[in-house]
Amino acid sequence: MTVRIRPAQLFDAGFAAPLIQSTIGAIGRALTGTATDEDAAHVLAEFFPLRGHRLSFTHTLIAEVGGQPAGLLVAYPGEFAADLDEPFRHHLRAIGQPGVTEPEGQAGELYVDTLAVSPDRRGQGVGGALLHSAALRAQNLGLPRLGLLSEADNPAMRLYARQGFRAAGERTVSGIRFIHLIRELSPEPAASPSVEAGC
Rank of each mutant, 00 (worst) to 15 (best):
E64W: 03
R54M: 10
F57C: 10
F48P: 02
Y76I: 13
A63D: 07
P69I: 04
F48V: 00
P69F: 06
A75H: 08
V65T: 15
G52Y: 13
L55N: 08
P49Q: 01
L72F: 04
Q68V: 09
P49I: 00
Q68R: 15
T58M: 09
E64Y: 02
T58P: 01
G66Q: 10
A75M: 07
G78Q: 09
P49V: 00
G52D: 15
F57Q: 11
P77H: 14
H53S: 10
P69W: 02
G71M: 08
E46T: 10
F48G: 03
F47V: 04
E64P: 06
T58C: 05
E64V: 04
T60E: 02
L61R: 08
V65A: 12
T58D: 13
G67T: 14
V65R: 15
F47G: 10
E64K: 02
S56P: 08
S56W: 09
P49N: 00
V65L: 07
L61A: 12
A75S: 10
E46N: 14
E64F: 03
G78H: 09
F57Y: 14
R51Y: 06
V74N: 05
L73I: 14
V65E: 11
V74S: 03
P77C: 12
H59C: 07
A81G: 15
E79C: 07
E79P: 04
V74A: 09
P77T: 14
Q68Y: 06
G52A: 13
P77E: 09
A75Y: 08
L72T: 00
A70S: 09
G67D: 08
V65P: 01
P49S: 00
P77I: 14
G78N: 10
T60R: 03
G52T: 12
L55C: 12
L73W: 00
G52Q: 15
G78K: 12
